[in-house]
Design a protein around this nucleic acid. Structure first.
Lengths: 128, 128
DNA sequence: TCTTGACTTGGAGTTGACTCCAAGTGTTAC
DNA sequence: GTAACACTTGGAGTCAACTCCAAGTCAAGA
């Protein structure tokens, strides 16, 4: 699979794909005889995984560490598991934070909906 | 309230507080006779609100817009409401994304838990 | 053969969000 | 009164995460 296809498939720019490879965020991609990247199915699974994790806010640094551990083989299974658990816990916390903020936004919106044409002194209240 | 207190109260650096004021992310703070910032209760409520929203990932640019609208008075109530609704919708989407990623992480961790000492060919599977 | 176009590389530039710094001023402690 | 300290300002520097660029290579079509 050529870089152009992969780029479209995952909606990541070619520059981003090359950048991810360069910094070790995805394992090195094979080149064909003329030096052009040829992505395997496994490469694509990595990219999809990384994209998903990045989307959820996991830092690149941590993901590079994970990929590195993976490439070192079976001795790192425990370390990888711990890394994932740590990130899972942080994700749970972030989601909870966001859920609280969401409720707050909903409350604020509701108040805006009730106040059809609010008077000046009521506007202040809207910022509670 | 002096900047040092506010900084501690909200766990934001003094630099960040000054930066937020400079870019219009919080309305201008009054100074005392000697030119030193003196935060009112209302200033604090803004800071707390902004911190909460930033935490949930709302971009600074949007929040500046919101503050700007607020300062323009009652004509902007509708615009503010729409801005909040748009941000609420995006937040809902982000939370849903993160929830999905969380499930994926949980699944991965479970698999790591089951594979006590996995053989080489099983390691590949762990990356599904 | 010549050009077009998709790719390659290493490195520089950008963006968002801070974070730090230098130079200056006003209040407090001795 | 002078040293220490907390603050002021405008501007420069930093960091993560891309994003863009110049110069070069290679395969395919007119």
């Amino acid at each position: 699979m050529m870089i152009a296809e992969v780029s479209k498939k995952f909606n990541l720019s070619q520059d981003t794909l090359r950048y991810y490879e360069r910094i070790g965020l995805i394992p090195g991609v094979n080149r064909n005889k003329s030096g052009i990247r040829d992505y395997t199915e496994e490469d694509c699974r990595w990219i999809e995984f990384i994209k998903c994790m990045r989307n959820a806010g996991l830092p690149i640094e941590i993901l590079i560490e994970y990929v590195g551990l993976f490439q070192q083989g079976d001795e790192t299974v425990e370390a990888r598991k711990e890394l994932l658990i740590e990130q899972r816990n942080q994700l749970v916390a972030r989601i909870e934070d966001m859920r609280e903020t969401l409720e707050r936004l909903n409350y604020k919106i509701e108040r805006y909906e009730q106040a059809v044409i609010p008077a000046e002194h009521e506007l202040k209240k809207l910022e509670d």
